[in-house]
Simulated assay, not measured.
Amino acid sequence: MSAGSDPGEAMTAEEIQAVAPDSTKRNAFTELMKSKPKAENPVTSSSSRSARPRSVRDGLGVYLENPASFPPSSVIYYNDDFVAIHDLYPKSSVHTLLLPRSPKHNRLHPFEAFEDPEFLALVQQETRKLRDLVAKELRRRFGKESAADALREAVLNGDVEPDDGVDGGLPRGRDWAAEVRAGIHAHPSMNHLHIHVFSRDMHSRCLKHRKHYNSFNTPFLVDVEDFPLDANDPRRHPGREGYLKNDFICWRCQKNYKNQFQQLKAHLDLEFEAWKKE
């Protein structure tokens, strides 16, 4: 298969060709999200730390085969059924991928894989778990700047007395879970099934192209909770619907930037600062 990207895909050729990061650095996010690993699945594990993908589009497979060989800066957590990783080319301030390890499903198109109701339920449950972790990371990063979290931060800092009986005495504060999205691309670029779980802010130096923005802000991204899809759902035909060619619409204020990506990009930087302060 060619290493080049298809015009109907969300990723560039450079991104498709990338495999796995080498960094061994730890950070607060990976420490927060790390859970005690279970024993390797004998079906998907590999004894080789240097296993290479058969195709550039099989790059995600190396995480499934031996997730323990990757540092916490790459693999967030794993268990018998899933591996959660940081997206190598994040399109938001927090962008993760959930990779199902089931050999029966993990190389199927999501539309086909999610026709299995038991597998879909398992994926939806694990996606909610990762969404919660991403929400906690957003609070850790941005809670001190958020007006909605001000009282909570004051309690944590000892400036205000806690209110007994509410979240351990803490005010609930901002609903960071509402700032997290989770879905699949209707036309995936990689061969292995993966679910994007990310903050909706679209703030990243890796957000560089039309397809990058529209693949996450049009029906090209299908929410995991929307499955199973109806047979006539138009999202089953992303090329026909032309989602990636849509005008640029700001995710926050809904202003239409037509075909002006650089103007949108500058606007998104302003929206990001305002969003953090909500």
Results as ranks from 00 to 15, higher is better:
residue 116 D to K: 04
residue 178 A to K: 15
residue 239 G to V: 12
residue 198 F to C: 07
residue 192 H to L: 06
residue 3 A to T: 11
residue 169 G to P: 08
residue 199 S to P: 14
residue 271 E to M: 14
residue 52 R to D: 04
residue 188 P to T: 03
residue 74 S to C: 12
residue 180 V to H: 04
residue 98 L to W: 06
residue 176 W to Q: 02
residue 221 L to P: 06
residue 180 V to M: 10
residue 184 I to G: 00
residue 164 D to A: 15
residue 130 L to N: 04
residue 245 K to C: 08
residue 74 S to R: 06
residue 215 S to N: 00
residue 106 N to P: 02
residue 83 V to M: 12
residue 54 R to S: 03
residue 194 H to D: 11
residue 163 D to N: 02
residue 27 N to H: 05
residue 222 V to M: 05
residue 198 F to Q: 06
residue 276 K to C: 07
residue 185 H to C: 05
residue 238 P to E: 06
residue 8 G to Q: 04
residue 195 I to Y: 04
residue 109 H to N: 11
residue 155 V to Q: 02
residue 257 Y to K: 04
residue 4 G to Y: 13
residue 82 F to Y: 08
residue 87 D to L: 08
residue 104 K to N: 13
residue 51 A to D: 12
residue 12 T to K: 08
residue 181 R to I: 11
residue 200 R to T: 07
residue 27 N to A: 07
residue 237 H to C: 01
residue 173 G to P: 07
residue 44 T to V: 10
residue 144 K to Y: 05
residue 34 K to C: 10
residue 264 L to P: 06
residue 173 G to V: 05
residue 189 S to F: 02
residue 25 K to T: 11
residue 198 F to I: 06
residue 128 R to A: 10
residue 35 S to V: 13
residue 66 N to V: 03
residue 155 V to C: 01
residue 146 S to K: 10
residue 271 E to K: 10
residue 180 V to G: 06
residue 203 H to A: 10
residue 193 L to N: 07
residue 151 L to V: 13
residue 176 W to P: 01
residue 134 V to M: 01
residue 256 N to A: 09
residue 271 E to Q: 15
residue 257 Y to C: 03
residue 37 P to K: 11
residue 176 W to T: 01
residue 230 D to Q: 15
residue 44 T to C: 14
residue 243 Y to Q: 07
residue 254 Q to A: 09
residue 16 I to P: 14
residue 146 S to E: 05
residue 186 A to R: 10
residue 69 S to Q: 13
residue 203 H to L: 03
residue 258 K to Y: 03
residue 228 P to V: 03
residue 137 E to N: 14
residue 175 D to I: 05
residue 203 H to C: 12
residue 57 R to E: 04
residue 147 A to D: 08
residue 41 N to E: 10
residue 244 L to C: 06
residue 261 F to H: 00
residue 135 A to K: 00
residue 219 P to R: 04
residue 108 L to Q: 12
residue 30 T to G: 09
residue 132 D to S: 09
residue 106 N to I: 03
residue 167 D to G: 00
residue 264 L to R: 01
residue 143 G to H: 00
residue 21 P to V: 09
residue 273 E to V: 08
residue 42 P to T: 11
residue 238 P to Y: 00
residue 79 N to E: 11
residue 97 L to E: 09
residue 246 N to S: 15
residue 2 S to K: 09
residue 4 G to E: 15
residue 50 S to M: 13
residue 17 Q to R: 13
residue 79 N to F: 06
residue 129 K to D: 08
residue 53 P to Q: 13
residue 119 F to T: 12
residue 117 P to C: 03
residue 204 S to Y: 07
residue 80 D to S: 10
residue 214 N to R: 15
residue 67 P to V: 07
residue 64 L to P: 06
residue 85 I to R: 11
residue 118 E to A: 03
residue 22 D to E: 13
residue 224 V to Q: 02
residue 4 G to W: 12
residue 244 L to V: 01
residue 14 E to K: 14
residue 177 A to Q: 13
residue 87 D to Q: 01
residue 117 P to E: 04
residue 141 R to P: 00
residue 61 G to W: 10
residue 64 L to V: 14
residue 203 H to W: 11
residue 133 L to N: 04
residue 197 V to S: 04
residue 247 D to L: 08
residue 5 S to G: 07
residue 185 H to T: 04
residue 46 S to D: 14
residue 88 L to F: 14
residue 60 L to F: 12
residue 63 Y to A: 13
